[in-house]
Design a protein around this nucleic acid. Structure first.
Lengths: 244, 244
DNA sequence: CGGCAACTTGACAATGCTCAACGCGGGTGG
DNA sequence: CCACCCGCGTTGAGCATTGTCAAGTTGCCG
């Protein structure tokens, strides 16, 4: 299968063959990381940039009150922190959720990437999308009810996984626990469980083990108020009117 | 008073005199905008970049359920969207909260800015800070109780306004309504009101009209779990240990 | 002085949380 | 190969925080 980074960047614009080869070259010698391992910790000085090739990782922050908030999922093709090396210390941590395959890219190789105009533009686009996703999560936690919030997240993951070839129709693997989901959407794992039961009972999804199937994608998107536009996929321009 | 953009960027690193002059030049001919006016709307094609010189503006998103979520405050020295012109359509709107003074910077002038290495680095830093702020808001809404959440926001605004010279000690002007605060922190305006009453009753703050005073800054920061590090101000390195 | 927007307060309802317990399944060690 | 254990998922009962509705007050601006 194609390199997930290439697939993702080409969702923005096609890359020259030489650029694709550079990406393949950079992704040699990946390493396997077990589940629930920190890749970078808050307070660390960021050095190498991590790129996820397989599995799920996340950004998270621990609070004095003992709670944890996950602020992003990193899926295959996502960079941990392309631009942070300008900062002295990480303000959050990054950990694997599932077992992952990742590459640590040294800074000089990152610069090789950003010297290629097509890649640079695509990475720029990708970082704008990451920010849009973050905003959308804030909108969810701040203004959507529990059911819509979780349904929205499932829709988002579907779309993101599709662009790297990891979802077909409405089905994909969701290798995280309900407790991790809870830390993502700002609910307790118990409440997350109840919401998932409800979504199953309604016939919206099936979820056995780690296999998720969204039975009627359009319906779930409508229910959760999901509007693809924020992912800025080139195909999806102007499908829906924004709310006024 | 110095240009707020200059002040903000110099919180990262000092700028050459020529760069400061360029910024001053770009900020000529600002325009005044009334309160509650949209600067850019979701769906619009982003063209000029807006820079706020005075007043408060915000990013926000409207939901099908009628709710609104504010995802960022833009204060003097903040750009609306430095990097978005690569995208075809805005995925959120930007509006003034208070009366504002702003400049619309055409794209070619933005490029003039980014061609100056010191400015480019500082803008890069600023955009990382914006993202960190966004993450912190998500953490607040997802994992902090109502009182801590609001207190945390007040602390953040204090620090941000200080770097542009708009706060002294614990006092600053907060030109927004409680309803707008509510849309920011994901609560109802009624609950926000109760929390503010509580903070007043405790002697943590005073708030008369738009004048906010944080009576004991350290105490409020401790209470809300505020850790300056995420703002990446150069002075504030390693003051606190992150939670583990 | 009138009017409107923002703020305030109270009573009640709902959403989501806490605590506690139990089932299920996969992996490990005896 | 079986028994145990531990992590994950599930369920119930009662509680807390926050939302809803409704009404009243304050204060500013014309």
């Amino acid at each position: 299968m194609a390199n997930p980074l290439t697939r993702k960047l080409e969702a923005f614009a096609p890359l020259p063959e030489a650029d694709r080869r550079l990406i393949d070259d950079i992704c040699r010698n990946p390493r396997d990381v077990g589940p629930r391992e920190d890749l970078i910790r808050e307070g660390d000085d960021p050095r190498d940039v991590q790129l996820i090739l397989e599995g799920f990782a996340c950004r998270y922050k621990l609070l004095p009150n003992g709670r944890r908030q996950i602020t992003a999922y990193l899926i295959p093709g996502d960079f941990c922190d392309l631009h942070v090396f300008i900062l002295r210390a990480m303000d959050h941590s990054i950990a694997t959720l599932s077992p992952c395959r990742a590459v640590a890219i040294p800074r000089h190789r990152v610069l090789e990437l950003t010297e290629r105009p097509a890649i640079a533009r695509a990475l720029w686009w990708a970082s704008l999308v990451d920010e849009a996703v973050l905003r959308e999560w804030l909108v969810g936690v701040g203004a959507r009810g529990a059911d819509e919030r979780i349904a929205h997240l499932l829709c988002e993951l579907l779309m993101r996984l599709r662009t790297v070839g990891l979802a077909t129709d409405g089905a994909y693997e969701l290798p995280i626990t309900q407790a991790e989901l809870a830390d993502t959407v700002g609910l307790t794992h118990i409440h997350v469980n109840r919401v998932l039961q409800r979504l199953r009972a309604e016939g919206s999804i099936t979820l056995k083990g780690k296999q998720l199937v969204i039975l009627d994608v359009d319906k779930l998107m409508a229910f959760s108020g999901f509007d693809v536009n924020y992912l800025h996929l080139s195909e999806s321009n102007g499908k829906k009117e924004p709310c006024r």
